[in-house]
Structures are given as structure tokens and as C-alpha cells.
Design a protein around this nucleic acid. Structure first.
Lengths: 117, 117
DNA sequence: TCCGCATACATTGCCGAGCGATATATTGCC
DNA sequence: GGCAATATATCGCTCGGCAATGTATGCGGA
């Protein structure tokens, strides 16, 4: 018995952050609001979750950051690195595989009384 | 800003166990192997995870159990209750909504170099 | 016969994700 | 002047999942 990467049984927030940065360079607070909107007001990543994730992503070399000093607001801009894009591709594929897997496991529920919501 | 049930950001193992029991009455070890097969050798729920889940599901009233005393092997059979079926329906819908949500968030990745795996 | 493996259930303790709470500082509006 | 929104950061808690461990039985092969 061998199994899938157990990491993605747990959260997919890192994936979402990486994905959001794929849309272009962003700072923390902007990542929060972008994610909130792209998920149609569903995913509300908390500050206490987001910043530690960003620090980790940087430590792993998947993003690089730069402080903005010119304008008034103090902002730290994050950008995907090459290895970050690779990581994103990997994670996205793992996610798709996991979804497909769950689809199979839940397959038999098709016959369940199909009450939506 | 309001958000979805944060529980399913975490694991979906309870959902999988409930779903497996929808296929009929089963004992712990059989749930493990059924899940393993229905997921095509991907989901390997560990004993240290499964049994605490089953105890919790019973405590919540979503399953009921009965010890098998006739045959040699000592087995505890679990069965979905009515409220358990309702719970399963709810959880399955939450899962589908979450998947749809992620699909939207990852939507922009469609243009990413489409290397499979 | 008996050793080892699969079966079968259970509990304890650890790890780590996500979050609430809190802290700090600035901008903009009423 | 005061309050909300913006912006980043850290600490400590909770809880899911799992490795490790314990116990016990049935079965096949050497």
C-alpha cells in the first residue's frame, strides 16, 4: 500500500496563494482581497495564516519579495520565481488528481436523493 | 466578509468514511480496504485515524454500531443512521462547492504550460 | 506444530495547518 | 480629533491526521 502526497489532504491555501501570484506581482493585503474576489466571496484567508505562508514560500525560494519605499503606504510586494511557477504547476496537478480521486470515492452517491444544497 | 465552513478546508476523511458506509453496513477494516479500492489505491486511511473518526461519528449519532459475536473474528459493524445520511448529503454538497470554488481560483492557470504531471 | 502474516480494534502522543488575538503604523474620511 | 480601512507581523491555541504501540485471533506454509 502506497499513497498520495498527504500534504494536500491538508489545506490548499498555499496553492491558492501561489495561483493568485501567477496573475502578477502582489502584496499581502492585495493577495487577500484578490483571493476573496476570485473565489466569489468564499475564501477569506486570514492575516495570521497568510503572512506565515508568504514567509515560508520565500524561504522555499518559490517567491521573492521587495519592500515598496516610494509611495506612502508600506507594502511588501511578492513575485513568483521560476521554481515557484514549477511548484505551482505541480501543486495544481496534485489538486486535480485529488479531486478526481474524491469524485470516484463519492461516485456511488449519484443515486442519492439529489437535493441540491 | 463572511466565509464557508472552515471544517472542509481541513480533511475530507469523515466525508469519505460516511460515503463508504452509504454502500452498505461495514466494519472498520473493511471500510479501510473499500476506500483503498474505490480510490484506486490512493486513499489509505490509517487505523489511528479511522477508529477515532468512527467513534466520533457514532457519538454524533450519524452511525450506529453492533459487535459481531457469532463468527470467530471479532468485528464491529457500522451502519449509517437517518441523520447520518443527511449529514453525508450536506458534506458532499459542501465538498462539491469547495471544488467549484477552487476551480474558479485556479481558473487563470488554464493558460499555464499544460504539462501533464 | 508453530511461526509469521494478515486481520481487527483501540489508545497515546506528536506534528503542523489555520486562525484568533494582539500589536504597530499609516492613510483617508467625517 | 476620532474611527475605519489598509498593511504587516507574531504568539499561542485547537484540532485533524498519523506513527507507534498494544492486544488478540485466524490462517497458511515450512
Amino acid at each position: 500500500m502506497e499513497a498520495i502526497n498527504p500534504e494536500l489532504l491538508r489545506g490548499s491555501l498555499e496553492l491558492m496563494v501561489l495561483s493568485t501570484l501567477f496573475g502578477g506581482k502582489k502584496y499581502g493585503y492585495l493577495i487577500q482581497s484578490t483571493l476573496w474576489e476570485s473565489s466569489r466571496e468564499v475564501i477569506e484567508i486570514k492575516a495570521g495564516t497568510l503572512y506565515p505562508i508568504l514567509h515560508k514560500l520565500e524561504k522555499e525560494g518559490w517567491v521573492k519579495s521587495q519592500w515598496e519605499n516610494d509611495t506612502g503606504r508600506r507594502r511588501k510586494w511578492y513575485e513568483l520565481t521560476t521554481s515557484g511557477k514549477k511548484q505551482l504547476r505541480t501543486r495544481a496537478n496534485e489538486w486535480r488528481q485529488y479531486v478526481e480521486c474524491l469524485r470516484r470515492v463519492l461516485g456511488s452517491l449519484g443515486e442519492m436523493s439529489p437535493q441540491l444544497a
